[in-house]
Design a binder for these strands. Structure first.
Lengths: 187, 187
DNA sequence: GTCTATAATTAGATAGAC
DNA sequence: GTCTATCTAATTATAGAC
């Protein structure tokens, strides 16, 4: 799950940071190693001293981006939902969620990458409901699908008003779901 | 919206049919013109007698795939939701919904393609609720996001049991939403 | 309209100097 | 570890024969 810390270096971290942003924004095929390395301030040749292949970089970048987002999550679930399903998230140049931005990109990749995605998905679903440690409950899955799907759809459509309406409708639905699921837990 | 019918030919339709299936399954960058033409039983050179570019083919393929699906939609909204959010839809080799399978692919494309997506999205949302002809209501948007997001997420994750649970949770949510929104319309 | 042949470009990955 | 140079392969698009 975690990568050996002895392999970390400043250059490696810079490559990873560039990769997170570029891949999340443009997908696997939309970014070349050249572009990542230029963004990180190096040339292509240096890449393979840090990563075995583009696919390995992609998997690590997704995982790392998710961890970076998680570290900035607000304590309140409601606040998380509101921030996630916001216009700001759509346009954020520094840190959008790969779960949403890459959801249909992942379905086209290999097992390793899909495992990484699954792990991230489960972690976020667990935060949204269900017993910690065990499987997320149905309400949490639905809430997360509204979040991921809402952001993905809002980004795809070419109509700012409709995008805002989609985000708002999903926000309401996700908040409702969380409220009624919290009520149930109190009973 | 519709393309000139005088441009239609049997070869053109065969190319389009291959493109629909291949693009939906693998995305824009995951399919080469060579592969589409081979699948259609021709060679690369013939492609440009029918389409101006790969991007034009992609836009037409998405639109055409959506129309083909629409033609097979069941009359009942409930039945549509059940079929959409099913394992069969995920694995269907002939006719998956580009709205779900390409949702994050589209966000990386140009205006024309995103307009096509928006039009298809609106058409399906209109079927799920709201006054015909006018804008879809919030419940319809939420329902469609559950459908599109549920299928996209289920396809991305690498855990068959979890995928089935996601589909089921979204199915229940979408059906509930539709039922209560139909009740509201009766009042 | 379809074919083969061929630009022209780009990308992932490697080799070897420093 | 980073650089430049290069290999190899794939891809979009075009040209021209039939």
């Amino acid at each position: 799950m975690a990568w050996p810390s002895e392999r970390r270096s400043e250059s490696r971290d810079r490559i990873l940071l560039s990769a997170e942003r570029l891949f999340t924004e443009r997908g696997f095929d939309g970014v070349s190693i050249d572009q990542v390395m230029q963004d990180a301030g190096m040339t292509r040749g240096a890449f393979y001293a840090h990563f075995k292949s583009k696919r390995e970089l992609y998997a690590e970048a997704i995982s790392s981006a998710a961890k970076r987002m998680e570290a900035r999550h607000p304590a309140s679930t409601d606040e998380l939902i509101r921030r996630y399903l916001s216009i700001q998230h759509l346009e954020s140049k520094a840190g959008s969620c790969p779960l949403a931005f890459l959801v249909s990109d992942i379905g086209q990749r290999d097992t390793q990458i899909r495992e990484t995605y699954t792990r991230i998905f489960n972690a976020l679903a667990g935060k949204l409901g269900g017993e910690p440690g065990s499987e997320p409950d149905d309400a949490a899955l639905r809430t997360l699908v509204l979040m991921v799907g809402g952001v993905a759809v809002a980004r795809a459509i070419n109509d700012a008003d409709l995008a805002e309406r989609v985000l708002e409708a999903c926000r309401e639905g996700a908040l409702d779901q969380c409220a009624s699921s919290a009520e149930q837990r109190l009973q």
